[in-house]
Amino acid sequence: MRKFTNHIDHVAWISWPETLEANIAELEKLAGAKLTRFERQDMGFVMYISWEAGLEVVSPLPEPTEFNQWLRDWLDTRGEGVMSVVFGVRDLERHKARLEALGFEVGPLMDDHPDSPWRDTLTLWERQAGVVMNTNFILGDIDYADGVIPFGAN
């Protein structure tokens, strides 16, 4: 398994549902990458992601949930754009302890959903660690199976 450490793992944008498909099409054209769609009905959002390209886009689903209300509030106050940067760390709990010792409040553990289409290619653990320049700073301890990330490939 490989992981990004002390380096940006991926960037997450947020999109209104009405503009989601157009935003995905534009991002795919610009990056030359295909983003895979995944729905989290339990949390009320849809995401498109390319682990290979380090790109993610999230959008709230119509059915209200606590999580998608947070997404809607974000869109209402900040609009579409970069919502989160996921920073790769080697040991999530050690990094959490270091930040808490410095006075930062670190969010609850977020892991991957068992039905995710990438469940066999990576192990994902994340924690929200603060907001920097109007962007969520997320700690990510993400292990990628060999071949998922094209390190050094053209």
Rank of each mutant, 00 (worst) to 15 (best):
D91R: 02
Q41H: 14
G32D: 11
E26G: 12
T19D: 05
D42T: 03
R98P: 00
Y48N: 05
D42N: 09
M83F: 12
N23H: 12
A53P: 08
E21W: 01
L55E: 05
V82P: 10
E39K: 06
L61E: 07
D76Y: 09
F38A: 03
L92P: 03
V57L: 08
L20E: 03
A25E: 14
L35S: 04
G32V: 09
D73V: 03
V57S: 05
A53L: 10
L99K: 00
S59H: 03
V85R: 02
F67D: 05
E63N: 06
L35R: 09
T19V: 05
L102V: 01
E80S: 14
R40L: 12
E26N: 13
T19S: 11
L20H: 02
E39V: 12
D42C: 03
E93N: 02
A101C: 01
W74I: 04
E63Q: 11
I49R: 10
R72T: 10
E56D: 05
H95R: 10
S84R: 10
M83G: 11
L99W: 00
Q41K: 15
A33M: 12
A53R: 10
V46M: 04
V89K: 00
G79E: 11
R78F: 11
S59T: 09
P60V: 03
V57Q: 01
V58F: 03
I49A: 12
W51S: 12
D42P: 03
G88W: 02
N23D: 12
W70L: 11
L92V: 02
E52L: 11
T19E: 06
